[in-house]
Simulated assay, not measured.
Amino acid sequence: MKESIRVRRFREGDEAALSEIFHSAVHRIALVDYTRRQIEAWAPRTLDALAWRDAMRTLAPFVALRGEQPVGYADLQGNGYIDHFFVSGHHPRQGIGGLLMARLEAEAKRRHLQAMCADVSRTAEPFFARYGFEVVERRSRSLRGVELANAYMRKLLRSETAV
């Protein structure tokens, strides 16, 4: 029997595990939609550990765990922007993304946000669409001199007080 998955807030010390999740998600899952050159630009084998640590502490994501092992993470910024949303490439299609999305939406409603939005990879676009996000604009982003196509997606949230 598989261990259940739970979601908790980020804790200092999670940074290395989240780096591995990010890397495996890009290299194992996004590879179907991007070239090897694009994948390497997006998630190079070596990332600046201090910069990554600082970024994760700033983002303060929610972390999905199977037992005590982090298997995914996602953040929600104060303006409703989702900067990172990644599930380990070793644990795809196991409901982890759905649990993280439910947690983000609950948090957005708790904060009385009107919408959530994200710059979403080609790979993640169908997932976000399943959760009610719509493409606002198709974009391209340059990372380390390499262009990567993505989409800016947004989901309007219903107000609990609306009739």
Score class of each variant (00 low, 15 high):
45 R>I: 00
95 G>T: 00
57 R>T: 12
92 P>S: 07
59 L>Y: 11
69 Q>H: 00
62 F>P: 10
65 L>A: 14
56 M>D: 02
67 G>E: 04
77 Q>C: 04
99 L>R: 14
59 L>T: 12
85 F>A: 06
31 L>W: 06
88 S>C: 01
51 A>L: 13
56 M>K: 08
74 A>N: 08
93 R>P: 10
91 H>P: 08
103 R>W: 15
50 L>M: 15
107 E>D: 09
68 E>F: 09
42 W>A: 11
89 G>E: 02
36 R>W: 03
89 G>D: 04
96 I>P: 04
81 Y>S: 04
89 G>T: 03
92 P>E: 04
112 H>W: 15
46 T>M: 13
48 D>W: 13
36 R>T: 03
41 A>V: 06
40 E>D: 08
112 H>T: 12
113 L>P: 08
70 P>G: 02
28 R>K: 06
53 R>P: 10
83 D>W: 12
81 Y>L: 00
96 I>M: 01
99 L>M: 15
63 V>I: 05
37 R>H: 05
49 A>D: 11
55 A>M: 13
65 L>V: 01
72 G>V: 04
102 A>I: 14
85 F>V: 05
99 L>N: 13
52 W>H: 06
56 M>E: 11
111 R>V: 11
99 L>G: 11
61 P>S: 14
88 S>F: 00
94 Q>R: 09
30 A>P: 01
56 M>H: 02
111 R>M: 14
29 I>V: 07
32 V>E: 08
63 V>Q: 00
112 H>K: 09
82 I>N: 04
103 R>H: 15
49 A>N: 05
36 R>L: 07
66 R>L: 04
91 H>S: 02
61 P>T: 02
109 K>Y: 13
98 G>C: 11
73 Y>R: 05
61 P>W: 07
32 V>I: 02
55 A>Q: 15
50 L>R: 15
40 E>H: 08
33 D>E: 00
58 T>H: 10
36 R>C: 06
85 F>Y: 13
55 A>G: 14
110 R>C: 15
